[in-house]
Simulated scan of single mutants.
Amino acid sequence: MTTSRLRRMGRVRRWSTAGAVAMFAASLAACGSNSDNTSGSQGADSSAATGTGSDTSALAGEVAALDKPLDAYPVPTDRIANVSSLARKTIYYIPITLQAPQFAATQKEITAAASAAGLKVQVCDGKGTPTDVNACIAQATSAKAGAIVTDAIPYGLAASSLGAAQKAKIPVVINNQVVDSGHPQSATLAYVGENAGPDQQVALAKWTILDSKGKADVLINQNTDGPSPAVFVSAGKKTFSGDCANCKVTVNEVSSANFSLVPSSTSAALLKDPNVTYVQSQFEQFLQPTQAGIQSASKTGVKVITGAAELSSLKALRSGQIAAASGQATSYQAWTDIDAVLRMMLGSQAPDYKIPVRLFTKDSVAGLKVTDAALASGEWFGPTTFTDDFKKLWGVA
C-alpha cells in the first residue's frame, strides 16, 4: 500500500483531546513498550475472508521477495545545497517515552546522522504523558530549535504545541503515525514511516496464506487505543479478503492499557474458535502475553507470528518459538528524519519516504546476526552503505 493511498483512505481523522490521550497507549504498543496498565476495554470482532484466490506460484514469489533484504535502500536522489549553513543548529528528538527500547536505537542513529550534517541533537523524553510531550515541544520552541522530530506521537495529542512550533518556523517531523487529515504534509510538517505498519500486515498476511495453502483461520491481537493500529490491520485484512477465499480472520481487541488482560483475552478468543491455526501479535510488545494466552487455552498446533519485530522477536523466531515476523528498518528511518529536517530548514518540502519492511522466517533469520549492533546498523534490511549515500546528498561526505 503506497503512502499516497494511505493519505486518501478515509481512516484519518482529526482527533479530539480525549481521543489523542487514548492514542498514547497505541503509540507505546507500536514501539515495543512494556506497559502493564490495567485500565481500558477489550473486545473481539470476526469476519470471514472472501475473494477469488491467487496464483500460488505468484504468491510464493511475492513472499520470497519479502523475505529477502534490499539490494539498496531507497535513498532520495535530490541533493541538498548549503547544509553547512545549518551548522550547530539543534534538533530536538522527542519520543513518546525513552522506556521503549526502539527509541534508544533511533536516538543513537538520529544523533549520528545529525552529527554528520554538523547538527546537534537534544533529546526530551515524552514520558508517556500528554503533559510531558507538550512540555518537550514547548521547550524546543522556546529554545528556537532548528527542527523537532517526534516519535510515535499523534499530531492530535499535541496539536497546539506543534502548531506553535511551526508558526515559529520550526519544521516538525512525525514518525510512525497515520497522517492527520487536518494537518497534512507541508513546508513545515512531514510524516515519516506511515507506510510501515500496513506493509508489515500485508507481508504477514501473504506469508500466512501461502503457509496455510489458502486455508488459514487467523486470530489477530490488534491494538485499538487509536486509529493507527486499525488502519494497519485493515491492510492485512484486505489482502486476506482478496487472495484467500477460504481464510477466516478474527480481530481480538487488546490494548496497552489492558496489557495484563491480553492472556485471558487471547485464551477466550481461542476457546470461542477452536479451529484457529494462526495467532498474530500485531506488535512485539504483545507477543509474550499472546503466547501465554495460547498456553492458558491449552491450544496446540497453532503458529504464532508477530509484527514490529526487533531483537527479541528474531531470537524467538530463530529458536522456533514463533513461525514468522515482520519489521521495519528503524535505523534507515532515523537518517530519513534528518534528511527531512535539513530540506525543510533550507526551505524545501520533504519528499515521501518509503521505509523498508521485511518479512522474517526461520530460514532467513538463520543467516542474520541477531544482535543490537546488527539492528542498529540496518543490515537486517539491506546494505549499510545508506549512511554514506545520505552524506553525499548532503555534501558532507
Rank of each mutant, 00 (worst) to 15 (best):
313 S>D: 13
143 A>H: 02
97 T>R: 04
66 L>D: 12
303 K>H: 14
81 A>N: 13
208 T>Q: 06
179 V>G: 01
21 V>M: 09
393 L>F: 08
119 L>W: 01
235 A>W: 08
393 L>G: 07
371 T>C: 06
27 S>C: 13
391 K>Q: 13
175 N>S: 04
55 D>M: 05
65 A>Y: 00
183 H>R: 13
181 S>C: 13
343 R>G: 10
267 S>A: 14
11 R>A: 04
110 I>T: 03
11 R>L: 14
372 D>L: 10
147 A>V: 01
320 G>H: 01
230 A>C: 00
128 G>P: 09
6 L>P: 03
108 K>D: 10
178 V>P: 09
339 D>M: 04
396 V>H: 07
111 T>I: 02
226 G>F: 09
301 G>M: 06
300 T>H: 12
186 S>D: 15
339 D>R: 04
204 L>M: 11
247 C>E: 05
248 K>C: 00
115 S>K: 07
371 T>D: 08
191 Y>Q: 05
224 T>Y: 03
374 A>K: 07
119 L>K: 01
41 S>L: 14
388 D>E: 14
108 K>P: 01
249 V>N: 11
281 S>P: 09
267 S>P: 03
20 A>Q: 02
77 T>S: 11
296 S>C: 01
326 S>F: 04
100 A>I: 07
220 I>M: 08
223 N>A: 10
160 S>W: 00
147 A>N: 07
379 E>P: 03
124 C>L: 05
209 I>W: 07
295 Q>M: 14
2 T>I: 02
212 S>F: 10
358 R>W: 05
121 V>W: 02
267 S>M: 13
65 A>E: 10
5 R>L: 14
136 C>Q: 08
163 G>Q: 11
16 S>K: 05
192 V>E: 11
211 D>N: 15
82 N>G: 01
289 P>T: 06
318 R>F: 12
155 Y>L: 08
16 S>T: 12
252 N>G: 14
209 I>N: 10
354 K>P: 01
255 S>L: 02
382 G>D: 04
239 T>I: 11
121 V>N: 01
157 L>C: 04
370 V>Y: 13
63 V>W: 02
45 D>N: 13
23 M>A: 15
136 C>I: 10
50 T>P: 08
137 I>E: 14
189 L>N: 05
190 A>N: 06
309 A>P: 03
150 T>S: 11
253 E>H: 15
256 S>M: 15
23 M>K: 10
364 S>A: 05
212 S>P: 07
329 A>V: 07
335 W>F: 08
247 C>L: 08
263 P>F: 09
165 A>I: 10
107 Q>V: 00
243 D>N: 11
50 T>Y: 15
88 R>M: 00
390 F>P: 00
203 A>W: 02
100 A>H: 04
242 G>R: 09
34 N>E: 12
378 G>D: 04
26 A>I: 12
234 S>C: 04
107 Q>K: 08
356 P>S: 02
192 V>G: 05
202 V>W: 00
16 S>H: 06
64 A>W: 09
326 S>Q: 02
308 A>K: 14
82 N>A: 10
29 A>N: 03
367 G>W: 05
101 P>G: 11
266 T>H: 00
308 A>Y: 15
198 P>L: 10
378 G>P: 01
197 G>E: 12
156 G>T: 13
167 K>R: 13
384 T>L: 01
55 D>G: 06
136 C>T: 11
83 V>S: 01
15 W>D: 01
203 A>H: 01
372 D>H: 03
128 G>C: 11
347 G>S: 11
393 L>Y: 06
